[in-house]
Nucleic acid binder design. Structure first.
Lengths: 342, 342
DNA sequence: CATCAAAATACAATCGATTGTATTTGTGAA
DNA sequence: TTCACAAATACAATCGATTGTATTTTGATG
């Protein structure tokens, strides 16, 4: 790396002290206007740029928060990130975005890296593999504020911003029931994640309300990738009775299933009505368009960031931390995949 | 922020010098095994974590590269990012991901932030608005290695990893011609970006080769968002003659057009055959599936990162920099939207 | 037991910026 | 002109880790 110019270079060139240069660059009232101008001019001339490593080290702040999501390419997460960035930038914070790729090992490493870089807080949506919390507890003991969004863990004193997945699962399933479905399959995800447990609970609650017996063989668990959806569809078709509805805990698996059904000559929605979850952009484009639960990603990002920034500014007080949990509603977007023409 | 433990805390607790602690933590042979063990134990006990700000400041390295893309949610960019991360992590580098959201102002700010954080290099795909290069020249003068991928600017001495957009545009257009299209519309993007100029040039070349006259009114320029595609489709339908083919410089606009055509009762591919560009995941799912040009995003990320890391390790030599330009082929993925049944 | 090289550890400067305190300079009033 | 006081600037310590050099300790050998 080249030798970047420092405040000492500027100081030497102008035969003044580095502290004066520093104050001038920070527009301190302790430096005269005339000197400030000379310093600014010289700084520009030399292409000076503040070294944030040094500055942050000295000031013991970084104005940076870290974000860990499973995958940035998922529409829901990238809209959350947009909400985070907007709120953070408005508050003068930088954002470091990381993806765990659904791997616990990577998540652990990312947490270490963020802490070592002294981010002031972390927003986290855990990976599907995350069934141990040592890295999160470490962060907590370390005193770095963090909070969960969407996918959370039960850790005392840690806040979360969540979707009401129970309600979402309930609404999705009830929608199918009200459309006349009797035998409703369900794709669920890794049971480590509360979001999937809750969506499944909502599914069961809706069945119960409408006095439809719960049948375990109708629930297929997987990682909810596209081919998991195809596998799940195959499983449902192999049952000795006809499955006429499907609530998938995400859109991707629902689409995998739709493709499989199409290949097999099973008509959606007439033979089987489908509701997904997340409202991926593709869901409005696929044919038939996929009914799904929309999650307010951007808003989640905004709220989570606001909460985190509050915790950051409260942190030095070492208050008895009150974990707050904000729960946002997801809303049904009714499209063609669930419209039985009866 | 809490008081994190430092090497001095460990040193004091063990009544030894901080330099010994530092060496122990870095596994230097100058510290005895016994002392190393005592230090490690104490470090764990106190929850020590190296302060990378201090470490990097002293060592004058950061082992970090920055990446600026227009949008992380675009499939092409997120696959490039995966390639970048893989290669960078293997080489012991961290990656900071940023999105410009297609705004020059944000791009400028991100460059400043990355430089201030002393990243050792930057990978950049410029925004659609980028028609001034002062921030990039600043980075160059500053001595921070960087290179372009996909979307580049002509700056002397700066390398690029690109797609052969001319060839891509040519292949896409010729494919339509070979399928019998005579009047081929074209959606192009902002002319500041070479990728769009080149795709258009490929389009014209293919017409020329097949002795089809070029008609300016068939070329619609926009930002290539989905509604731009719909607008473009409307424009094409308003022409006094029938347009029977469309090459869109991205998939998003192509899909916007497809939806518009569907609404208007124009059949794809029979009335109009369509080829997009980028192979967004949705393109394989939409009905009819969209023929498109696939770009090897992951590979671009790998190659760009390798090149950048080379430049980083060569930087101190201040060689006469030889800009390298790697050009990768994009490949036609033939799907239903271009299959005329004749 | 003395000696000496090797091993282990301590000392001190440094990275670049910030900031509390001390000193110098400048201005107006007496 | 002199004094007091404010404004402007300089000095020096500091953030936490690293690293070249100096010093102490260890242990092997004669």
């Amino acid at each position: 790396m080249e030798n970047k110019t420092t405040i000492h270079d500027i100081a030497k060139a102008l035969k003044i002290d580095a502290s004066t240069v520093s104050r001038a660059l920070n527009n301190s009232p302790r430096v005269s206007q005339k000197t400030k101008e000379r310093i600014m001019a010289k700084a520009n001339e030399l292409g000076y740029q503040r070294n944030l490593l040094a500055s942050n080290l000295r000031k013991n702040v970084t104005n940076t928060i870290g974000v860990i999501v499973p995958r940035i390419s998922r529409h829901f997460f990238s809209s959350v990130i947009s909400g985070i960035e907007e709120t953070a930038y408005d508050a003068g914070y930088n954002v470091i975005i990381c993806q765990s790729l659904e791997q616990l090992k990577r998540e652990r490493k990312l947490v270490e890296t963020l802490l070592a870089n002294r981010v002031e807080g972390v927003l986290l949506s855990v990976s599907m593999e995350t069934d141990e919390f040592d890295h999160l507890l470490h962060m907590k003991n370390n005193g770095t504020p963090f909070l969960f969004f969407d996918r959370h863990c039960e850790i005392e004193g840690i806040s979360s911003v969540l979707i009401d997945d129970f309600q979402g699962g309930f609404d999705a399933t009830e929608h199918l029931i009200l459309n006349g479905c009797k035998n409703i399959g369900h794709f669920s995800g890794p049971q480590e994640l509360a979001i999937y447990r809750n969506r499944t609970a909502g599914y069961r609650k809706a069945l119960e309300k409408h006095k439809i017996p719960y049948r375990p063989e109708l629930v297929v668990r997987s990682s909810l990738m596209e081919n998991d959806g195809a596998e799940g569809a195959k499983t449902l078709l192999s049952l000795p009775y006809k499955v006429d509805g499907l609530f998938s805990a995400n859109d991707i698996a629902a689409i995998g299933a739709m493709k499989y059904f199409k290949n097999e000559g099973v008509k959606v929605p007439d033979d089987i009505a489908i509701v997904g979850f997340s409202n991926e952009p593709v869901s409005g484009i696929i044919d038939p368009s996929l009914t799904t639960m929309d999650q307010p990603g951007f808003q989640i990002g905004q709220i989570a960031t606001k909460l985190l920034l509050e915790e950051i500014s409260n942190a030095p007080n070492a208050n008895p931390i009150l974990a707050k949990t904000k729960i946002l509603k997801s809303s049904l977007i009714e499209r063609d995949s669930s419209r039985k023409c009866n």
